[in-house]
Design a protein around this nucleic acid. Structure first.
Lengths: 195, 195
DNA sequence: CCTGTCCATTGACTTATGTCACAAAAAAGG
DNA sequence: CCTTTTTTGTGACATAAGTCAATGGACAGG
């Protein structure tokens, strides 16, 4: 990991870093290439690592009782992915995390993570601020799910993450937005007609 | 605040506390009585305090573009309520927080909060663990919203928070579950018929 | 005890979205 | 290229849940 690494950049968005801090981080994270179609983990697995995306794209989804997939998160470069809850608690996960493109990640084991939080107050601070932001974002998605129709959800995504729409098939967008692919197709048709 | 205070109890569920820590907390939190029907804040307000519920019951809701209410959270004793995102960021809130019963809370100002996080590592740790748990819980509600029908959502709530059902009117339960009050009424009828 | 407000229930009807089936288009792979 | 697979679009139909309106019960305050 270099000093101009993406992770360093992102941490700097939240906290001040000193020279020594760069060094410290180096020992904790490891690089890995993940091929398109590979899984970081699947339902029932123990989650041994936290994963930071350096390049590429991932999706996190789960499969409900009826066997349908629901995408919970897309992870672009600069984002964390995985299942934080199970990483922390040690429970097995309900999720699948799949690389949608050839990707490069940093990963850190649970024991290294625990050690890092103790040794690096700046990292603790970064992690906390990220959690605060993540909680607010998830709450907003919940509000949206409960108060908004299919068309508005799509337009909202179009505004917030226009880049994702270029990179993943529509049926995954539909899954992320909680609607059938047919509904999304009709929403898109309707929007382009009314322009 | 006494040493056997509910907040202390809750903190102890997450981190070890020393004698001196009790003392420290005392200076940061203040008690307040809130009457049934009163609001901690409303849409458009700045959120100056974080609020911990000692007794009573609160609801957090927002009003969408069509003017319908959506309840995001009920807060029972031992829970935090308010709008953490806006408390941290300083933005004005979209939410209403209303006391559904006469209640007793602890509150802490933003400046005291920031100071506490610096002075009390144990508190920082407690806060972080709470965030981790809260994020996982909110994610689960999102999954449920996207993958589950009205009946299952109700049964799930019945299992998780049976106490809330005794204390709030049905139309609020319906709002919390993202369905109309008529649908909830029919779900309940259907369940009692099939027993 | 009466009156008014709030809340839950129910029926009739509407609507958004899902499901199924098939065809067209686009992308991937040899 | 040509073939196969994946993805998207569309029509017909099904269904869960929403909306509207009316009714009756419960409870609170005068």
């Amino acid at each position: 990991m270099l000093m101009d690494d993406l992770l360093i950049q992102k941490i700097k968005e939240y906290v001040k870093l000193k020279e020594a801090d760069f060094e410290l981080l180096n020992g904790y994270f490891k690089n890995k290439q993940i091929l398109k179609g590979d899984f970081l983990f699947k339902e029932g697995d123990a989650v041994h690592h936290a994963i930071f995306v350096k390049s590429g794209l991932f999706r996190t989804y789960f499969i409900d009782e009826q066997g349908s997939e629901h995408i919970l998160q897309f992870a672009l470069p600069g984002w964390w992915t995985g299942d934080l809850g199970c990483f922390i608690s040690g429970e097995t996960t309900k999720f699948f995390v799949e690389a949608l493109e050839n990707s490069e990640v940093l990963f850190i084991s649970k024991s290294a993570w625990d050690d890092l939080l103790i040794k690096a107050p700046f990292y603790l601070d970064y992690h906390r601020k990220l959690l605060e932001k993540g909680l607010a974002a998830t709450q907003n998605r919940l509000l949206e799910a409960y108060s908004t129709d299919a068309t508005k959800k799509y337009l909202q995504l179009l505004k917030t993450f226009p880049d994702i729409l270029q990179r993943v098939p529509q049926y995954m967008i539909a899954s992320y937005l909680g609607m059938s692919r047919e509904t999304l197709s009709r929403v898109r048709k309707h929007i382009s007609n009314s322009k």
